[in-house]
Design a binder for these strands. Structure first.
Lengths: 202, 202, 202, 202
DNA sequence: CATGAATGAGCGTTCATTCAT
DNA sequence: GATGAATGAACGCTCATTCAT
């Protein structure tokens, strides 16, 4: 029974923090941020309220921290590694990754959707990330992608964004409405629509 | 000097009620139902909290009343007049009307989006309407529409729903991202994709 | 169509005031003073809230005024006309009158019971009447009555007061529990118990 | 330094809950249920409003919990152990226990009196107990008791109930009006009146 | 590290009272 | 005289947060 080493303590801390975060994630995504109480999170995570505040400074910080990693991850996904152009292959893999992410991170996406739909909370969280910048940059690259391939790039970009956003909603909120096989053929359909060779410069 | 007539009172009531409802509509749509307080609504509507309850029985009823007309309107829009089949013309006008509704009822749609994304609140309000039924019926008719025209109707229905949902989000939350002219050509694009003659029966 | 005379106006005022008072009396007695709202009284009396305040200064004053007459009436009932002694005949008629009053003024009595059972409200109302004094005086005379006739006057006075109070509760709150015929024979029983000739002075 | 044990917490809870309940009991009995506010109870109990709700779910539940034990106790008192008949000894001990209860549970009785005198509140609390049933059964047994002993049982039952009710009011609200010695001789007087041998069957 | 008792600001709501008409 | 819209203080209650242990 030697006293636990610092490392072990840290391990425990990390694990407990993770449990809390996951519990909160689930509750936030199900009931919404405002409708979820700290008491409920603590109870479901089987710890005391006091301890929760030992790990997270506030309810808002808890939310922020939960989304932090996910947002960073999304940022890298959104933020193409090259700065000048999106290739067909990149768009294709962007598709795949986004859909994969929606399927595996349903709860994060739900929270994100809720937050983007109301003023206030989100700004605080997003202010710490470059996600706004990344999104803007992506939009420009996207526009260029479509401009290089379609006669009406704005229209096509809008279609692209609509489909993706809508699909996200469906996957995240009514997954039973898009079983895997349908989703697979659906992806093909999307590729048929959006992935085209660049127009030849005359 | 003489007391106000019944008509005058009615006038006052109607007008004030309308002011309150509009203020609440705006705040609910901006900040979300839960994050909006009665105090805030009252302050923004420049009345006392007490008076609000002279016009609306509760916060929930206020929300319900705000959405009531809109939901009924949506229901008739969603609920096709014929029970067996959707024609090309009907789908086209459905498009048009939905997009028109999103543009003119941005705030109602925002609230609706928020509500559908969290358990609880919505059920009470929707329980009084057949919107669930209508939606289900529409889904079936939609499937039939695509089944009559496409080789892979499930996939096509998913595409259709995705585009519509996504477009709704964009129009409602970032209208600056889809100016009228782009939207017009976009509608044509959609029609090209989804409106097709029925496959001939062999 | 000559304009109404002052007298007529007063007549109308008086009548309306009476309607309000009666409505309030009924509600106070049924639901209790605190649980009855001014709005409810006004609605049941078919007048506006504002008008009610034209006739009564406040809810408390309304209550006070309702009880005023009744209390005065009770006071004269309680307050024996002679100052030195209660005769057998007087006690008998006191019996009769009290029971009669309970039967005919059920609602007033209910309010009175409620009020005597809580601090605060009652003091204000009773402070304007001599009912406290009268009661005290009566108690002394009562004691003398029993002292002149019974070996254990204190005990007998307690019995007397208990019976009367309890009977009041029963008549006022569960009148169905004492139909007229039972009540009649009951009165005889009471007289048998309490009405006796004075003990002869040795 | 080390966290409190479960036992310690239980101790604290129990004690504080008791303080709150006693404070509420006193205020309810003095001012009435409706006229007593949660703020007042909290202030008098020297805790915050919030804490009160840590111990009691609502004002109504607080009332219910305060009365719960007392009502159960009353029920067993009221509910005679045998189902067919009340004996002289039982009536005598019923007397004694009732009077004892009124003296020691003055505040509970006050609340009970108040509640029985207004519609609404009481029903909720009583619905959970069989007190209504018990009372009804007692009434039948009581009638039988008097029918077996007196020529006019209805009248005698009414007298019995009146005396008891009235005495309760006096003991509970003006205890100074019935000192112990008077009460003792009073009880004897009552026994003389009501306790008699059964009439012999002819 | 861990507990949950305790706080207090603020919530949705009610209602006696006032006042312009 | 008569109306009911309007007020505001106070109600019962909730909950993020703190802190003694």
């Amino acid at each position: 029974m030697s006293p636990r080493t610092k490392k072990q303590f840290e391990e425990i801390r990390k694990e407990k923090k993770s449990i809390i975060a996951e519990t909160a994630l689930r509750l936030f995504s199900e009931k919404g941020y405002h409708a979820t109480t700290i008491s409920e999170i603590a109870k479901k995570a089987k710890i005391s309220k006091g301890l929760l505040y030992n790990y997270f400074d506030s309810k808002e910080k808890l939310l922020a921290e939960i989304l932090q990693n996910f947002i960073i991850q999304m940022e890298t996904l959104i933020n193409p590694n090259m700065d000048d152009e999106i290739t067909n292959a990149e768009l294709e893999s962007f598709f795949e990754m986004m859909i994969e992410s929606m399927k595996t991170n349903r709860e994060h996406w739900r929270i994100l959707f809720q937050l983007t739909m109301q003023k206030g909370v989100i700004s605080y969280i997003f202010s710490k990330n470059d996600i706004g910048n990344s999104a803007e940059k992506l939009m420009k690259l996207g526009y260029k992608y479509f401009a290089d391939r379609f006669d009406n790039p704005q229209e096509e970009l809008l279609l692209f964004r609509s489909v993706l956003k809508g699909l996200a909603l469906i996957i995240v909120y009514t997954p039973e409405a898009c079983p895997d096989d349908v989703l697979e053929s659906f992806k093909k359909r999307l590729k048929d629509i959006f992935i085209k060779p660049k127009k030849t410069q005359k």
